[in-house]
Design a protein around this nucleic acid. Sequence first.
DNA 1: ATTATCGCTACCTAATTAGTAGCAACTCTC
DNA 2: GAGAGTTGCTACTAATTAGGTAGCGATAAT
Lengths: 116, 116
Amino acid sequence: MTSDVPKPGQPVRGSKTGKPIMALFDLLGRSWALGILWQLSEGALTFRALQDRCEQLSPSVLNRRLKELSASGLVCRGDEGYELTAMGQDLFSLLQPFGGWSEQWAEALGAPDGGD
Amino acid sequence: MTSDVPKPGQPVRGSKTGKPIMALFDLLGRSWALGILWQLSEGALTFRALQDRCEQLSPSVLNRRLKELSASGLVCRGDEGYELTAMGQDLFSLLQPFGGWSEQWAEALGAPDGGD
DNA sequence: ATTATCGCTACCTAATTAGTAGCAACTCTC
DNA sequence: GAGAGTTGCTACTAATTAGGTAGCGATAAT
């Protein structure tokens, strides 16, 4: 294992080609990675605040995800705690539409609304 | 087992609230889920063809993902094999921009281009 | 009948995630 | 400046998921 942070241009978990899109999918396809970006989109959060927002996500996993996301240039530490980098915000702007979509999806599946 | 397919409105892996967005992130945040949607966006593929596109992904994992994605209404079986449902295509349209973004990201990280 | 492909299950090992405890550093109060 | 509280994090273990391989039953062509 060269590195366990998926980087474009390198083989990643499940992908030997290193195609950027596959590296990105690997990075985002890890538990809570998308959730963390989602939570940070509203502003900086301390480690423990982030843990609370992510339903008491264990510190070991949170720390791993934060290291990966930092190494990938999506998250960094500021005065207020962890926050999205410019690139992270840019990625979030692509992610944002998923919020509304997921609600349509919920209705289509006939699932009760979980609230916000 | 109630169900290990994350459905909006129900608690999912790591999320007890069942918020649609969290259920969606759980579903998509499993290995190869995003990759499978990506591959199917170009048209229907048989089980084994899909396996090839996903770099010989093991049948056990592929089958698990396909069941989850089917149960979530994103994928179904047609004459030609597995394909995206209308809802799956709709989701893909949100996913598509990630392709271009990942290439910018690759450059920003100074990674060599993985081709394609 | 034989061979080949296809979709998939069974089984096992490796890796990842989840959960809990607690420490070192820092701040605040007194 | 001792004690209490908070923060960021590491260490360790248990549970869950992913990955890999073998191969079966079904269908189709030879």
